[in-house]
């Protein structure tokens, strides 16, 4: 009886596997404790009472849903900050490398490079602004007050941050291609290429995390009762 109840509870909490495991372990410890101290001679009656006292698995899952969403939102906020900062560092490393190796943009590509650079800069600083907005919104504890709408605002802001970062990283790719085009590929070309590959990976990870959050938020919101 206990095992079936714990399975139901874990299944109801399947929107957050780590949480489901922990709650299952805690519920198991609680139920065993309750059964052990129950004076009833009939073990199955003691089990039934303990389960009834703990509550309906679906109702418990609904209470945990809001908490899980808040944790996921906080997690993605940290990822946004780390990735925006990481991309900024990668850009700086590339620029410093060009300066160190006296590698200038060929004159025939300068005008297009300037245009791409200005788009790149606007996109990057817009993503910094949006990332800061996500951070401030989540730290203002408005999400803690908990509503599916506030979570929706967070993932829309995260999606916009990812979009503008993707434009910036695309611009960086174009600038790197313009810089490397026609040049002989050698060890000097490795740092710019690697830093751009890092940027692509970072923005892809962020995009993936935002998609996972959106998917989880949708399934969790169905259970969420503020």
């Amino acid at each position: 009886m206990i095992l079936a109840y714990l399975d139901n509870l874990e299944h109801a909490l399947r929107f957050d596997r780590a949480l489901a495991r922990r709650v299952r372990q805690e519920a198991e410890a609680h139920l065993l404790e309750a059964i052990a101290v129950d004076p009833a001679a009939d073990k199955s009656e003691a089990e039934r009472k303990a389960i009834a006292g703990f509550g309906d698995p679906k109702a418990i899952a609904a209470q945990f849903a809001g908490l899980s969403l808040v944790r996921q939102v906080r997690g993605i906020t940290g990822t946004v900050i780390v990735i925006v900062f990481g991309i900024f560092v990668a850009m700086k490393i590339r620029v410093e490398w060009y300066a160190l190796t006296h590698w200038t943009m060929p004159a025939d590509r300068k005008s297009i490079a300037d245009l791409v650079l200005s788009i790149d800069r606007y996109a990057f600083w817009t993503s910094v602004f949006l990332g800061t907005a996500v951070y401030l919104y989540v730290s203002s504890r408005r999400v803690l007050a908990g509503s599916p709408q506030s979570v929706r605002r967070v993932y829309i802001l995260c999606g916009m941050t990812t979009g503008t970062l993707a434009v910036s990283v695309g611009g960086d790719g174009l600038l790197t291609a313009l810089q490397l085009h026609g040049a002989q590929l050698c060890s000097v070309s490795i740092p710019p290429v690697l830093s751009w590959l890092f940027e692509i990976s970072a923005v892809s990870i962020l995009g993936l995390r935002v998609l996972i959050l959106m998917k989880r938020a949708r399934s969790t919101t169905r259970l969420f009762t503020p």
Binding site: V23, A27, H30, G53, F54, I60, F64, L67, R71, L144
Partner: peptide, 16 residues
């Protein structure tokens, strides 16, 4: 109270 509710409160307070 339903005992499961207390565990939700414990998790919420820990998260806070």
């Amino acid at each position: 109270l339903p005992e499961g509710t207390v565990y939700t409160a414990l998790h919420r307070l820990e998260q806070a």
